[in-house]
């Protein structure tokens, strides 16, 4: 007795599951290999408060620490290395340059499957 049919079925299921991302992406036409383009602020807006790479990795940490410092310690502004003094505000400072949340924040967040709850309260666009 071999039960060959059952084994083959099980094995096929296993292989299909293991390689399902491959088939799914083929079925979808192979898109999504590259991160979606993000709408960057106009050059006139000036430099970001940290360098770009750091922001990509750790912006959530910056926002988190801003949050505590502003709300709990009343430290509302910060002097950057280049001498600029900025207000620690998601809405005012960050969204001030990155004016379109959907074209910047959401695109990347959706791409990597991250759902921050900042925008449960904070208002996304000026006048929104």
């Amino acid at each position: 007795m071999y039960d060959g049919g059952k084994v083959v079925f099980g094995l096929a299921l296993f292989v299909a599951l293991c390689t399902s991302p491959l088939w799914l992406s083929v079925a979808r036409g192979g898109g999504g290999a590259e991160a979606p383009p993000l709408q960057m602020p106009a050059p006139a807006a000036g430099k970001c408060v940290r360098d770009g790479e750091w922001m990509r990795n750790s912006h959530m940490e910056l926002l988190n620490s801003w949050r505590d410092e502003v709300v709990r310690e009343g430290k509302r502004s910060e002097q950057l290395a280049d001498g600029r003094v900025i207000e620690k505000s998601l809405t005012k400072t960050c969204l001030g340059c990155h004016t379109d949340k959907t074209q910047f924040c959401d695109r990347c967040h959706d791409y990597v499957g991250v759902k921050p709850f900042c925008f449960d309260c904070h208002v996304e666009t000026a006048g929104g």
Partner: peptide, 12 residues
């Protein structure tokens, strides 16, 4: 997103 690019690069 760089990580996902690597991963998606593999599957595509």
């Amino acid at each position: 997103s760089a990580v996902k690019e690597v991963a998606m690069g593999l599957v595509t």
